[in-house]
Design a protein around this nucleic acid. Structure first.
Lengths: 200, 200, 200, 200
DNA sequence: AATGAATGAGGCTTCATTCAT
DNA sequence: TATGAATGAAGCCTCATTCAT
């Protein structure tokens, strides 16, 4: 009954889809369930989106933006190593915050790779780019080579992803919290060896 | 026409399933597609396996065994750190060997978590356990605490998983090969800080 | 093309199911055949009913209601014996009216017994109960024991069922019509011996 | 391994089928189950019988013969009415003996009607014929019209069938045992009115 | 803008049956 | 005679999508 503009409807569907993907997985995220969650009917969903895939593309972008948000919120602190540490910790904390979000993210990455290899790459690139920018800002006048920044971003992403997989599999928040410290320690050790000499 | 014993047919289906899971995801791994890939028909699949889930259980075991194989093949070399490095490299090389295997593995972990939380954990535990055993053998008479071994195994797994995700997303073998070295360097740095002092 | 509300579609399916059950048996009453008979497709059937069993439950209720209708339409006449006779004749006439209905009824009783023992009993009980009520009303002030009413209801049901089986097997309406008189005569003889002495 | 002649195998299958039909219903009587019960495999079944329907035809004949046996075992006693009573009671006792047999019988009757109307009729006719013969023998020199014998046989069959349905539905052996007496009483009353005057 | 009704394709599974040995 | 292997048809059900109002 309430006449809601299409734009609004779309974001409703996106949010609904995130919820459903998180709780039911990519395969369980059917149009029916998404529409239900969005308090609409299936026909309405197809009035707003030509196909389920189109909706998922938007969902993907939404999740990517959320990820970017976490990175950007990490204002450049102290120096390069400290910022890197905060970045990694920020992402892991976001994962720890919601297992559903973590699951949904991994599912979507997998989905993007299968459907459109490019899209997955684009998001990964984007995320790494954002990280690099933040890191560069933190480096300030320190002479850090672009290659070093690339590597740091890559290592942060790798550690965060690995952490996410384990946390998802075990679902043990206490253990994961302890593991966060280990992962950060790993990064620290490497940074000390990789960056310190360069800046010395 | 060719009358093939079920035992072999089963492994045909397992291999086919790995391929299909890798390319279409767990949800897209339908009986139809798997049968087609195995050059059989759907009824044949159900002649060999009572249900799709039964087949997937075997696929799961296949992947787990393969993973175990890699770890066990890493005979204890030199000392603890060297063995750890070889373990990590061995797993990553296995991933690099076959993108399908990598993708299927990740999908199956996700699937196992959703379907049978315990099973996913069991495989992870098993893998970590095997690693710990190998590492302990490598440690020899060095006084390494069990906690340290736990951490080392966890870090190896985390780094390997993170590496896998990136390699899968980009699908760029050359880049991944280069990244292997970075990941190994990360492990080395951390090991130097974590283990060396203790043994010193 | 013609957009028919689900409510009506449902009764279409019910009628179709009765026909198909009668001609193909419970096992032969597949969703395909029922949908075809109802001039719809299988998906439509599942749009109206969540499952085949749900549809069958409605078919069951339909048959039970029809049976109840016949009994209730037999307004209490004259006295007990006359009413009993009219009840029996009413049920047999309903059977004679439609062989499909008769066959479907018998199949459904069998099905209900296998699937939900209680449901089969419930309908039988319900039918007998309705009969008893009508009979009691007809008895008026006559001192008829509840046991006697139970027996009368049982005998009516037994005779009607036996009649139905024969009529179904032969499918000879003329013969069945003649047999109706025999069956009624059987009831009359027994009633005379069972009830008359008590009321005398 | 053991080389069993086809004839023997066939009767094995028939007996197995009876068991399976009794315990699983007509729909549940699959070739697999029947073969398993007969300790053979499905291919063997089709070596002995061209089709499942062929086997069922033999099963049908087997059950019919069993029914005939009951009737024939009722040696003519005393007079017509006594024999009729014993016939009815004999059949009911056979039903009471095994609910499975009762169920299988009714299922097969239904099946025969649907598949080959003629076959159902033939068996019914045969059963009635056997009854008539026995009754005629019991009547001895009494001047009982053929029409009367027909009617008596029909009433016995009708009462027995009606009894069977109720017994199957409720599955209450105690109640059914009590109902047997009622049913016999019904027959007695009617016989007294139908035959006695004629013989008087 | 909104929504019940409709549908073809495909999901997994079981069936009766046949083939090849 | 005997039996593992193979298969097409059909079982029920759910899906994404479209049509008609």
């Amino acid at each position: 009954m309430p006449r809601i503009p299409v734009a609004q409807r779309r974001s409703d569907f996106i949010e609904a889809a995130v919820e459903v993907i998180a709780s039911h997985g990519i395969d369980g995220a059917t149009t029916r369930r998404i529409a239900e969650q969005a308090k609409a009917n299936v026909a309405m969903l197809h009035y707003c989106y030509d196909s389920k895939e189109d909706l998922f593309a938007d969902v993907f972008e939404f999740v990517a933006a959320s990820y970017r948000g976490v990175v950007e919120d990490t204002a450049p602190h102290a120096g390069l190593t400290d910022t890197a540490r905060r970045l990694l910790r920020g992402v892991m904390e976001r994962y720890l915050e919601s297992a559903s979000f973590t699951a949904a993210t991994l599912e979507l990455i997998s989905w993007a790779r299968r459907q459109h290899g490019d899209r997955g790459i684009a998001v990964y690139d984007q995320a790494l780019d954002t990280m690099r920018t933040v890191l560069r800002g933190a480096a300030g006048d320190d002479p850090v080579s672009p290659e070093a920044l690339d590597e740091i971003a890559y290592v942060i992403a790798t550690l965060a992803d690995g952490f996410a997989l384990s946390w998802l599999t075990y679902g043990d928040r206490a253990a994961a919290t302890a593991q966060m410290d280990i992962v950060v320690a790993v990064l620290d050790s490497w940074l000390a060896a990789r960056v310190a000499p360069a800046t010395a």
